[in-house]
Design a protein around this nucleic acid. Structure first.
Lengths: 219, 219
DNA sequence: TGTACATCAGTGAACGCGCGTTCACTGATGTAC
DNA sequence: TGTACATCAGTGAACGCGCGTTCACTGATGTAC
């Protein structure tokens, strides 16, 4: 009766398309209106499919919501882990500056210049700051692995930092990145600038330099 | 038929109590579940009043939501403005360190140790990062005045900073403060520590010192 | 190769619960004369 | 001072819309023999 819960990539294109179109529409609408604020009919309408197909493919609204997360998490996590690990294998060990710059740059570019990440990351922020049905999934599969890797790398480049201090510093770096995304409207009002590429690059540089000074030199 | 829309403080106690109890319950539930996720019946049930009284006192759910904001904004804004302005009048001009420490300390204490602010600020964060019915109210009446005052004070203590740089620095400071509140759960998971008073004080010191180094000395 | 049946994605219409809101009401407290 | 009426806060029950979900169905594509 109902299709197996395997991933879209395992199915032929024609079959995947309805499923994928629902996921795409759901991602945008959930990110704009939240879980409770989004209506299944709006999703299916935006996707150009029948209302019943959400239940056919996902067995309900809640599971569709979870599936939106399951679809994107692996790629996003791996992208960030690569940014933390730095240049492909070998080479000399990363410096603190390389680490922070690479992480901040990757994170920010991902957030502002990739349409898929922008919507999806809004969903992630919502879920983390206001735990909902996907909180555990997001934390376990994405946030903790990335932050642990960042913490390890930070402790490697700055062996004088203990783990507690490193965790606080990571909070400071990530807090800045997220704030400049989430408080866009307010920052635009304050600065009178739109979030165009040059301004975003400026923000990225600011966060990197502010954070490098904030973390400070050894000693 | 319907009561005038004046503030609770202007009414005798017995009349204000139903109204105030609805506002109290609404603040908690809206902050936990969001606007769309909160059900009027749950609010009136928690307040111990009749369902119809929300419409009687507030002419509907949406206006109740706005009223929750209108009630708290003035006191919160003034508290922050005082923290920015520093010691009552006269005295020598603030140093950068005094300014940042006072602001961070006040903000954090407010967020973690005052039960009312905690719930209310969650609502504010929601509204700012995902503009809803109260976005303009919150921005115009609270966020912009506070950030402008902070920006002015920062430019006074560090005349070498231009306004654009000051705005970015303020984003960095506030971003950290908010992140350590909103990502509590994740930070607890990372650090293995609960948000008790000593840990919160530690965070406050960390943000202050990280930010002072981040803003940097003149030149 | 043809036939009968199973299985699939997808559909249109309806169901029924939960929600915000409305309505007609009560009982207490002014207020005019 | 007493009487008639107006105005208030607050209520219980019902209304009716919007929502997620279900149901019986279609038509296309395997698959067994």
């Amino acid at each position: 009766m109902s299709p197996a819960l395997d991933t879209a990539s395992q199915r032929p294109d024609s079959e995947a398309s309805t499923r994928a179109r629902i996921l795409d529409a759901a991602e945008v609408l959930f990110s704009e209106r939240g879980y409770a604020g989004t209506v299944v009919r709006d999703i299916t309408c935006a996707a150009g499919v029948n209302v019943a197909s959400v239940n056919y493919h996902f067995q309900g609204k809640r599971n569709l919501y979870l599936e939106v997360f399951r679809r994107r998490i692996p790629a996003l996590r791996e992208g960030r882990l690569r940014a933390i690990r730095g240049q492909p294998a070998g080479g000399e060990p990363q410096t603190l500056e390389e680490l922070v710059r690479s992480f901040v740059d990757h994170f920010i570019r991902d957030l502002y210049f990739s349409r898929t990440s922008t919507h999806f990351m809004n969903l992630v922020f919502r879920e983390v700051s206001q735990p909902g049905p996907a909180f555990e999934l997001v934390t376990e599969e994405m946030i903790l692995p990335v932050q642990r890797a960042f913490c390890d790398a930070l402790c490697r480049t700055r062996p004088d930092l203990n783990r507690d201090e490193a965790i606080l510093c990571i909070g400071s770096v990530i807090g800045q990145i997220i704030h400049f995304l989430r408080a866009r409207e307010v920052i635009s009002l304050m600065s009178g600038r739109r979030f165009t590429r040059p301004f975003v690059d400026r923000i990225s540089r600011h966060i990197t330099e502010f954070s490098l000074r904030g973390i400070g030199g050894p000693g």
